[in-house]
């Protein structure tokens, strides 16, 4: 069971690499931002799998904090895209 979870963890990390490919390769700036957004959500899945593997509950706290921080980061990037000031 642990080895199967290991395989799932490696697949998830490979998916993060796919996001990195989109970030590096993306023809326009919004494509890169989509990659960053999806990367932030995938990390939460990694946190969940590590929690099941190790049995330590505090890793889920890292996941929740990561979701909220990635949300704020994406909102900031979207504001930058639409060309407004940050206090608007």
């Amino acid at each position: 069971m642990t080895s199967f979870l290991n395989i799932l963890l490696y697949i998830q990390i490979a998916l993060c690499a796919a996001c990195l490919y989109r970030i590096i390769r993306g023809p326009t700036i919004p494509d890169r931002m989509v990659g960053i957004d999806i990367f932030g959500i995938l990390v939460v899945g990694i946190c969940g799998i590590i929690t099941v593997q190790t049995g330590k509950a505090f890793i889920l706290d890292i996941g929740i904090a990561w979701v909220i921080l990635s949300f704020i980061g994406t909102l900031t990037l979207a504001k930058y895209l639409s060309g407004k000031k940050l206090n608007e």
């Binding site: 700036i29 979701v67 979207a78 639409s82």
Partner: peptide, 17 residues
């Protein structure tokens, strides 16, 4: 909630860009 709202914001920002 965060994923869907971030998607709206990105789509709108990209269109205005």
């Amino acid at each position: 909630f965060t994923a869907t709202v971030a998607a709206h914001a990105l789509a709108r920002g990209a269109y205005h860009f």
